[in-house]
Nucleic acid binder design. Structure first.
Lengths: 332, 332
DNA sequence: TCAAAAAATGCAACCGATTGCATCAACCAG
DNA sequence: CTGGTTGATGCAATCGGTTGCATTTTTTGA
């Protein structure tokens, strides 16, 4: 910048204003400076600017994946979420930094905010982190969390309507005549619990009741558990899985045991990840509209940073019917 | 920091040294300052530190996805790459910022480096960007690119051995008796071209020659093209697709046309994305070891930033046989 | 034509850390 | 007791922008 100042013969303060398109600067001067900047390939030093302006035009996304957690970063849901948030952030002229906590106890969230590396934080999933997130205190007004709506949260929540999603799945399975329905998932997680409750509520209307099969978000675990159940004497004609990864594993397990999907066992997943329609049969699922979710979170976070009040938001939640319940596989 | 200085009664320079564990500071003083820092939840201001140290402990990853490019960010390959790089960066105590260029012509790479937002850059794929990357000039010594090995590159390349991958695929298809093999992909991209050449070389030994089916990385396009070919009069008994997404689409297309995989048409993909074994039949593919690739790139980039010489590196490339060529589908 | 208002530019403090150099105290050897 | 080391700390410049205020230049209106 001082280089540009010398070249154009004005003070660096004028250069600064010109580059920021300040109305204080004469149009001719401004044009000349911009021209010079362009020619010399000058780019404002973000480090200095960030320090002075006390902001960094950067958002952070925290993915709760650590050695020992059952979910891995390669879970397509996380990856799609990263993609969605990243595109939304870019659209709003923010950079996005990814943070993967090394351990469940590390307080990297606070550190990211306090150190000023990020102006705000998007946290994916609140499982077992409610307290920790609440303890962010002051910093909490620069945090948006993706997760199920719970009352105990001080932070802003964005997420799909998990209860409604569960209800839709239950109703659909009822509609196609299924009565013995397994729920595959870990209801200790708030999001999953809501999906389960939605399912229960839908089935009540039909006089049925689901059977709970506890399972983490690990596809291999789901495969094993469903295979065991198939080989056992529990009778069931449908599975509602807490995620598409689990649902896809369930399809495989059911097929491996010699039964047909959907004729013998209908299967519904949750998330509508890109792979849900790349398998045979396609996986019927609950769409969370991840792309929209990312956009909503980014916008909400930017509003919060600007001090505007922001309230929790639900993304549209809808049922996507494919071969795993419908009998016909749709091509992509 | 000035707060800590007041609290502990020493100069901020001493506080700074203490927090950085400098040997210049008396151990007792140091302990006391660290204690205070812990109690008050103090975190070093990254913005100021970055400015002063002329570095930001941050790497950037550039994904060449923009409106109009056929590949989308939701391509699992990109997502897995982001995950791999992100974990590797975290391991080396670097933050990672994601950059999605808004247009093919935008020079966001240079900007990221020159502005100091990132100390170094990892670029995924060099398709049509060779010139642009070479034009980075000085900045190129802080760039590592994932892509096929080509001679014209000034920058450091890391990638799987695309030629060998193609050769492995060709050999395998030959071994199982296939002679009429389609290659599905866009050989204008350097990586894809090498895969094709590897395939050709393997088939030469067997007296066969592949048929080229030009196709972008878009799964839907692949589906349409393969379906057309199936309905036409071209005879073929195998497909080697330039990516798993294309391979999976090909499986669907072939099945939709009433033929069996692998009995009528054997299919091999490329990448070994997580979903390759979540479909039926599982997709035989060439594993690029994305996780290792991410780690190698991060290490190479950090070395380059430190001024060490770094040379191009190939990641191990191997054939993973699954149901789409083997006749038996493996459970996950 | 000249004072007042408006527009454009310059000056200098500031953001919060890091670090070379100066200073000061404690300790040692002669 | 004194000069010389060593260890510990403080001082102040610095990184490269941004911005409130002062100053200069230009424009306006009577």
């Amino acid at each position: 910048m001082s280089g540009l100042a010398k070249l154009s013969g004005v003070d660096i303060s004028t250069v600064s204003r010109a580059l920021n398109d300040s109305p204080l600067v004469n149009d001719k001067t401004k044009a000349q400076i911009l021209q010079l900047a362009h020619e010399t390939g000058y780019a404002i030093n973000a480090r200095a600017r960030n320090l002075r302006k006390q902001s960094s035009q950067t958002l952070g996304i925290v993915i709760p994946v650590y050695p020992g957690s059952h979910q891995t970063l390669s879970d397509p849901f996380f990856l799609e979420m990263i993609g969605a948030v990243s595109q939304a952030a870019a659209k709003h002229d923010y950079d996005l930094i990814i943070n993967l906590p090394n351990s469940p106890s590390e307080i990297s969230e606070r550190r990211l905010l306090v150190s000023g590396k990020a102006d705000g934080l998007i946290v994916i999933g609140q499982a077992g982190r409610t307290e920790r997130l609440n303890s962010l205190g002051d910093a909490a007004n620069r945090v948006v969390v993706w997760g199920g709506m719970i009352d105990a949260a001080d932070y802003t929540l964005v997420g799909s309507d998990n209860f409604e999603g569960g209800r839709l799945a239950g109703q659909h399975l009822g509609d196609i005549g299924r009565r013995r329905i397994l729920f595959l998932g870990d209801i200790d997680l708030p999001e999953v619990k809501l999906r389960y409750e939605g399912l229960v509520s839908a089935l009540q209307g039909q006089g049925a009741e689901p059977l709970l099969v506890p399972c983490s978000f690990d596809g291999h675990e789901a495969y094993r558990k469903i295979l065991e159940l198939c080989d056992g004497k529990t009778a069931f004609d449908a599975i509602f899985a807490a995620s598409d990864v689990l649902g896809i594993a369930a399809i495989h397990a059911v097929q491996a045991s010699g039964r047909r999907v959907p004729e013998d066992v209908a299967i519904v997943g949750y998330d509508n990840i890109g792979q849900a329609d790349m398998i045979s049969p396609g996986l019927t699922t609950i769409d969370q509209n991840i792309a929209l979710g990312g956009e909503i979170m980014v916008k909400a976070l930017i509003d919060k940073i600007a001090g505007k009040p922001v309230k929790a938001t639900l993304t549209p939640t809808r049922l996507v019917i494919r071969g795993s319940t419908a009998g016909t596989a749709l091509p992509r």
